[in-house]
Design a protein around this nucleic acid. Sequence first.
DNA 1: GCGCTCCATTGGAGCGCTCCATACACTACG
DNA 2: CGTAGTGTATGGAGCGCTCCAATGGAGCGC
Lengths: 341, 341
Amino acid sequence: MTDARPADASRPTIYDVAQRAGVSKSLVSLVLRNAPAVSEKRRRAVLAAISELGYRPSSAASSLAGNRTRSIGVAIDDFENLWFVDLLRGMRQVLDESGHNVSVADRQLNAHLGRDPVDAFLSMRVEGIVLAMETSGPAPPFGGVPVVVAGAREVVPDHADYVANDDAEGARLATQHLIGLGHRTIGHLTGAGGVSRLRRTSYEATMADAGLSPVVAGSGGTTEEDGYVAAGALLETCPDLTGIFAANDVMLLGALAALRERRLSVPDDVSVVGYDNSPLAASRFLALTTVDQRSADVGVHAARAILARHRDPDREPSRVLLSPTLVRRASTSTPRAAPGA
Amino acid sequence: MTDARPADASRPTIYDVAQRAGVSKSLVSLVLRNAPAVSEKRRRAVLAAISELGYRPSSAASSLAGNRTRSIGVAIDDFENLWFVDLLRGMRQVLDESGHNVSVADRQLNAHLGRDPVDAFLSMRVEGIVLAMETSGPAPPFGGVPVVVAGAREVVPDHADYVANDDAEGARLATQHLIGLGHRTIGHLTGAGGVSRLRRTSYEATMADAGLSPVVAGSGGTTEEDGYVAAGALLETCPDLTGIFAANDVMLLGALAALRERRLSVPDDVSVVGYDNSPLAASRFLALTTVDQRSADVGVHAARAILARHRDPDREPSRVLLSPTLVRRASTSTPRAAPGA
DNA sequence: GCGCTCCATTGGAGCGCTCCATACACTACG
DNA sequence: CGTAGTGTATGGAGCGCTCCAATGGAGCGC
């Protein structure tokens, strides 16, 4: 592991490689981008020189000269919110093929480049931005870069493409699942933001359609603690409730704590459904029935939308809504036989 | 939101800004880096031109010309493993001040730059790399870039600085906690990698010191499922066990499922301790006693190590071990009164 | 053997910045 | 009044690449 730093101080450039391989810098450049029109002999010589010198191409130089970065930025709220992991997986599936890179940045990005991840991406000259976060206020100027909004949002910039799971359908699925099981008194735990609003509205509509009256609680946030508080309120106003649909799995985890405090068991006393199909819900211990929002597919479509807009910048903004699926696990069952023991 | 693209097609450069503000490109550059020696008048003119044109500096150009990127790369295994979130928080606390950016990349990074995140970082000419993942095989050549390894690992490149929580101490804390509570038959769930090995070894030593015999199970992995399987095996070989120390919180979650299947309650029948103090463990519902590895502090030290090595590339590699703390929650208690009911 | 095409290979220009040495306008002081 | 000093502003060179037009040699048909 001797550090083969060439005494020469600074890092090797294509010129160093070219010299060592006995070719021109242009040929080195061709090899790097593995152009076809290079003889096998030279290619090998160049490759050898590269590894001998420990040369690494400078991405700054190549994106400056080539006038393209081949990279796509994904802006997220917060790394703790794991839904972006599947989103990324889906995006990469598409973008690996087209030779693009994806880079992720969260809100805190910091940097003198500008605090906003979008700002940083614009400075990086990314070839597309996926907004996987709740955007605040009016859309920033994107300067002609393709933008796709992933996941339901309050506001969608109108020049942006849009891909999300159909939250209304998901909420309907969850609610109907409980109704179908025979539950009649079903509460909803709502969170903050556009996503929660969609889920809540659909829950209310589904309940109404079934001739049942919706009961909603929420304490303004979307955390476990919010779920706990909201569930407490729900149980207070509605002690005979046998079903809960939470706006997301994390809030549902909070609700579970509230239920346990009241010695209510799941699913015997109360059936519960979450949303997101997070690793949490999928765990063997919790095994929560939940709605899968197909984030990987959202990622696939988001990536395709970027690519499509790249081809034709003036195409109509697309709006894709993917149908979520209900994942049945152990947290729901038919309601307790009767109001007896 | 009219796209003020200057008809001119491509994006504005400092020259465009300079012309519009009636100054030289150099002055614009000075304003961008907010140099002090610029008159208020000109500065305002430049700033105005910038926002009128929707100008964004090109980070590629500035890092090429300036010969520095002011950015630090963090390489992680997997976004689902949340410990890096706190690590990042700690790093940013330090690096925001010094005007550095941090960018994160996981294993899948892909890209034509090279599949390895480290490769990509080297191409980006980052000024430091934090390895927050299990490195495979011999260390790659880092070409003189400061490297710090964060978190316990199998192999630590010997020219690298090293910051981790003291896993041996953490495991001792956990084991002693159970012993102190009065438990005598305590099993351990072990995972894969250097971290798990350290924790396991320390558990065994601590048990031996107390005159107790260690019982270890593990199915080769570190997932919830592995925890479930391992806990099953543990319970099989050792039915009278009253305490479990798991190599991490996620495995512990699996163990919880195995315990429940056997109608063993926590903490009445079995007390359990995890490691990581993940959001999972901190949740009100699970409330797991666990070891906090102080990831944010690890981040702070990692960032400082990068900065220090930057100042003096030849300094001795530093090895920092932070003392973890035990977080007592609801999953541990004194063992059941006696072998009665 | 000449002109031709076809191909691998080449040098030069330039991407958008930063850095440096220099120029310019003032003020300060002997 | 001349010279140094101070605070601003400037053009030119060059960072490490990619792109392009051009070069030179091999292969081919007549």
